[in-house]
Computed example of a mutant assay.
Amino acid sequence: MANGNFLSFNSSLPQLHITSEDIEFDEETLQHWRDEGFDVHYIPMTGGGKPYRDLIMSLGDKLPFGGSYGIIAYGEAAALCLDIASKPLPHCAALICYYPSTIPKPNAMYPTQLNLVVHVTESQDLKAKFPVHVYAGVEPGFAEHDLDEFNAVAAGLAWTRSLAAVRKGFKREADLETVRGMHAAYTLVRKDADATIALMATDPHVNYVPTMTGGVGKRALQHFYDEFFCLGIPPDFRTRLISRTVGVDRVVDEMVISFTHTIEMPWILPAVPPTGKAVEVGFVSIVAIRGGKLVHEHIYWDQASVLMQIGALDPKQVPKALSSKGCKRLPVAGRDAARKLLDMNKIPSNSMIPDW
């Protein structure tokens, strides 16, 4: 862990100072910022007061020419940093405040060059005229991995917002598409489980949502890719990219996949023997990346469409509980759903809506 000697830094990397009232801080969070390419230093508040304020206000004093720095503060330290930053902090490119104990100047107008992000919980009931992000159902501490209050969903959302502001402040961009492309090549083309795992962060997970296949952690994912995924890709498996959205720390791909069900495919059709049927279905993949490594992949598709195309689901076979109420067909589309995704005009809209 970095210590309080914040002035002995590596000037070749952008400087990021993390501060809270604790003597030591969540090492996992510190490492995540290091992984993103920042020179990270932890500053304990140690009682606050004038010495702490002077310390925060002097962070830009020893910077090289044209240099800048950022601050990420938590709790009481976040409140103090908000108060300090209401007046210009020379060379401070970003200030990220997690659940400040108070918002000392809710009507403050912060310098326009300061990329300010404030995360508060709904239970704190803190309001300000400047934008704040409010997180419901969590308590202060939700973004610190070593606390009982840690909440992975809220922490992940806050991380993305914080990373966006810090990158903007330092004018840094990340090449996420290359990592995404390597992952696809290793899994679908090379079918190389070892290379796939080597591309992952220390704490990865993969979730193929409709079938709940994938795994949590490198050991489980190594087994999944080795024994089930890479062996479950038919020879004619194809992907067609429709759109790609590259965000701060993730890539969202909208695509159509096609294959002939000639082999067992445990990741999409677990426990279903090969049917020889052709399948074409829309897919959405969300890949999250941290420090050039894949953190997780979430994959969504219309499983009812897949089952219909292999002959495992007949939309005309309506359960009695629904047919007795007048339902004549289940609202399930087969290959037409994917074809409409490729060409909106190829398949009519609203054909499932009676009397359209």
Rank of each mutant, 00 (worst) to 15 (best):
E139G: 00
L313P: 08
H296G: 04
L55A: 13
V281G: 06
L82R: 01
K328W: 11
H145L: 04
L30G: 03
G181L: 10
F224E: 04
P348M: 05
E122I: 03
V206N: 00
G4P: 01
V120Y: 00
T239V: 05
P315K: 08
P14M: 12
P210G: 10
Y42M: 01
L126T: 03
G292K: 04
A312N: 04
A288Q: 15
P106S: 04
A78M: 05
Y42S: 02
F259K: 06
H119G: 03
F38T: 00
Q317N: 14
C327Y: 10
A201E: 09
Y69E: 02
P315I: 11
G156H: 07
Y52K: 05
L330I: 13
L126P: 00
E76W: 06
C81K: 02
R219P: 00
A164F: 05
G141R: 02
S324E: 13
F224L: 10
S324Q: 14
A73E: 02
C81F: 07
I310M: 02
L13E: 12
E24V: 15
E227I: 03
E36V: 04
Y74L: 05
L341M: 14
E227G: 10
S68T: 11
F224R: 05
E21S: 15
R238K: 15
Q31F: 06
D236C: 14
A73D: 03
P131L: 07
A77S: 10
E28C: 06
E27K: 13
V246Q: 12
V306W: 01
F224M: 09
S285V: 09
R250T: 10
G141T: 05
N345A: 14
Y135K: 02
P111R: 00
V179F: 01
R335C: 07
P348Q: 08
C92M: 07
Y52A: 05
P235W: 06
G217C: 08
G291H: 12
P274K: 08
M109N: 09
A304S: 13
Q124G: 03
H17G: 00
P270T: 13
F25N: 02
E122Y: 07
S305L: 12
S58L: 11
V251L: 06
L330E: 08
M182C: 03
F228S: 11
S12C: 03
P14T: 10
G4R: 11
A174D: 12
P111A: 08
R290S: 13
R329I: 13
A333H: 10
A278S: 11
D54T: 15
P273E: 07
G334N: 11
P354A: 07
I71P: 00
